Amino acid sequence: MIKFFYGIEGLLDEYKRNQLDKFGNIAFIITWWYLLISGFVAMLLYVNNSKIAAIFLIAGNLLISFLSLFSIIYFLRKKKLDTVEVDKSEYLDKKKKYLRKSIGLGIYFGVATHILNAIIDTVTQNGNFWTSISYVSNICTAVFEGIGFGICMYIVYLLKLKK
């Protein structure tokens, strides 16, 4: 999962691959135990109050998600597994590749958030999906979100690039 997320499957040597697999295995075991224990605790809480059980699961899942995200980032930075080393001759080509990839990710993010916001508006406000999706303010918001996300991803890619 970590390899897919960072898109570094083909760029790893054997040592980096082993380190990444080791961390992924440990993260999987911890997550599996968390799911087992939190499901049991939520079941016990559900007997008394279903609202408390739902809040416990949502808060716990968010906490574990953020902890795992930050631990993955810390591990990758510490072991320098996220750096992409290129020659000076390949540097401009790699920057162009990352620019195209960032533009694609920005478009994807903008479209996905626009559709999800329209669905959320339809469900929460009992409105019409097509009215919500064609509303100009929602379209402008999605465009700015996509541009911001694309810029952020381009900066992240450039920070990983090493001459």
Rank of each mutant, 00 (worst) to 15 (best):
20 L>A: 07
110 G>H: 02
126 N>F: 01
94 K>D: 02
148 G>V: 04
11 L>T: 14
79 K>S: 13
68 S>Q: 15
123 V>E: 09
27 A>I: 05
145 E>Y: 03
149 F>I: 07
122 T>W: 01
12 L>I: 03
113 T>M: 11
127 G>N: 06
42 A>F: 08
161 L>W: 08
53 A>Y: 10
154 Y>W: 09
134 S>A: 08
125 Q>P: 01
8 I>E: 00
37 I>C: 04
51 K>E: 13
29 I>D: 05
15 Y>A: 11
99 L>H: 08
33 W>Y: 10
95 K>L: 15
74 Y>C: 03
74 Y>K: 12
146 G>C: 06
119 I>F: 10
38 S>F: 03
90 E>D: 15
1 M>P: 06
4 F>N: 14
29 I>E: 08
76 L>K: 04
24 G>V: 01
33 W>T: 07
41 V>N: 02
148 G>C: 08
143 V>C: 04
54 A>I: 13
87 D>G: 15
161 L>C: 06
32 W>Q: 08
149 F>Y: 15
22 K>R: 12
73 I>L: 15
48 N>C: 06
124 T>D: 07
92 L>Q: 14
52 I>C: 03
151 I>S: 02
55 I>K: 06
15 Y>T: 13
62 L>E: 06
10 G>C: 07
83 T>C: 05
35 L>E: 02
51 K>F: 11
28 F>Q: 09
45 L>W: 11
24 G>F: 05
27 A>L: 14
67 L>P: 01
60 G>N: 04
117 N>K: 09
82 D>H: 14
133 I>R: 00
124 T>R: 07
154 Y>N: 03
67 L>T: 05
116 L>W: 09
41 V>R: 01
84 V>E: 05
64 I>G: 00
1 M>W: 08
9 E>Q: 15
89 S>D: 13
149 F>M: 10
60 G>E: 04
26 I>G: 01
90 E>V: 01
1 M>K: 08
22 K>S: 10
102 S>R: 02
85 E>I: 15
143 V>E: 07
47 V>L: 14
28 F>G: 10
120 I>K: 02
144 F>L: 12
108 Y>C: 09
131 T>M: 03
57 L>R: 00
77 R>N: 15
120 I>L: 14
45 L>Y: 11
